[in-house]
Design a binder for these strands. Structure first.
Lengths: 111, 111
DNA sequence: TTATATACATAACAAAATTATGTATATAGC
DNA sequence: GCTATATACATAATTTTGTTATGTATATAA
């Protein structure tokens, strides 16, 4: 697992965005999707993911239902209406922050 | 001050990069530079900045000297040799992380 | 004389990770 | 049959790294 201090603060945004693109996902599926998209460079730890999902649910951003597949329980998450609005906000914040960070670190790709 | 959870993990990198570009800087100057470059969108809090500077110094990345200007003490920081190597690493990590994050959030600017 | 800017520092607290541990089933390899 | 690995969830202990609040002190503008 990539002990990535940079991950801090972005996990919620990542989860919300994935659920915007994929109506329903379960926890383990999210870890695999992130691993796949980032070619293994970002590996979510369970200790971070599950509490984050629980918090988003408690905050009314996600709703859940369970399903049993192969005798194993899966807990599916989907965006609530409020969660749908929150993604927009979070994505704009992330976009803006990345912009500022690139400016500070001189990482702006030459246009 | 922008209570910015996204800042987590990037403060050290920002400090090191600024000191790569400007041989010598003091704490307050760093806060002003960040504020200037980000058009006021990122405001470093003193409670985050000074401990971060002290830690980087303790870790051998920065060295200091003081100077009195207008009866006020300034504590200047500059990169050590090790600090110079560390900037390279941290910048590469940041660049890579921003890449992965943009991929996950579908924020990749169209090329 | 009062507010704001400059300049540092640290303590109390909170958020959000990592690390470690636990439970349980399915499957592939030996 | 046994063992390792993958799937699937959860939580407690700890660490990292911020915010918020507070303190000291000088210079300057209103």
């Amino acid at each position: 697992m990539s002990t990535n201090p940079l991950l801090k603060g972005t996990l919620q945004t990542i989860i919300l965005k994935l659920l915007e693109d994929n109506a329903e996902m379960y926890g383990y599926e999210i870890t695999q999707k992130v691993k796949e998209v980032t070619a293994g460079e970002i590996m979510l730890t369970e200790g971070a993911l599950y509490p984050a999902l629980h918090k988003l649910e408690a905050d009314g951003m996600l709703e859940t239902f369970t399903q049993v597949v192969d005798n194993r329980v899966r807990k599916y998450y989907r965006l609530t209406e409020e969660g749908g609005r929150e993604v927009i906000t979070k994505l704009e914040e992330a976009r803006s922050f990345i912009d500022q960070l690139q400016a500070l670190l001189n990482l702006k790709p030459a246009v």
